[in-house]
Amino acid sequence: MLPDSVRVISGPGCPVCVTPAGYIDAAAEIALKNDAQLLTFGDLVKVPGIRTSLEKARAEGAEVRTVISPLEALKAARENPERKHVFLAVGFETTAPATALAVRHADEEKLANLTFLPAHKLVPPALEHLVRNNCKVDAFIYPGHVSAITGMAPYRKLAEQDVSGVVAGFEAEDLIRAIFAIIQACDRGETFCLNLYPKVVSEEGNLIAQKLMKDVFEEEDAAWRGIGSLPASGLRLRPPYERFDAWKAYDIVMDAREQEGCLCGLVLTGRMEPQDCPLFGKICRPENPSGACMVSSEGSCAAAYRYSMGETT
């Protein structure tokens, strides 16, 4: 559909894709060793860890329940006070405020049977990492719903470093408009930073959500699947909320190793097209994924597989 001169690269990954493999193992271990119910977004269930997956853990007896909101985890904990619950808190700035809200409610209600396993990630540090590592794109298409929370400030900062980009929505016409705007702006030869999604994204972002995130979380260095550790790119619970931290409550440490043979990291950083990975479509398929990019419906490889291999589901 697009001319050969325009190349759209997917990266640096969806929230599920960038969650380290060791996180999955840690979650499975908590459930199996401590008889706690895991509450997770559905996309995470099939993601392979290093040793296991939540799906396999479920087959071994772990209770893994899918939810669409951290607030559902609160409800589950309230309804079953005798049972331990752990919410798997992954996601970018779009989801982190919802987790922060659930933590604050859990604190206010003094819930003793709910903890959170935070692996939230922040988008701007990943963009800065790509820029520092010679990611040669003409412009970024910035994520619309992350930007609804953050506002334009992170991108204005990137523009000061000569990095161009546009904030766009998620519908096809939003993306076409974004690509068209980038082509026009590139022709002018100046650095640009445009908000093409003003119906959802304001200049300052969602100030209530920003404040809540800052109250509940503090930044920490965090491991990104396929990318490695990035400074101040993750969120941990601040000391007043430490008792809700499942890492501490269950005394568990994440195995930071990468999965062997998986090249998701190259795909996530735009250095490899999904189809160029030797595992793509052969060993690694949506029904039996080797890497996270093939699991999540938003993953680069799952999308490439769906549209290049004639899959419709």
Binding site: S69, L71, T94, L101, H145
Partner: peptide, 23 residues
């Protein structure tokens, strides 16, 4: 949840993510 937006009223349109209105 409408805790993260100001002045939510019937008839308003909102963007919902993970069970929470974000704008």
């Amino acid at each position: 949840s409408v805790e993260l937006i100001e002045g939510a009223c019937p008839g308003d349109y909102i963007m919902v993510h993970a069970g929470v209105a974000i704008t």
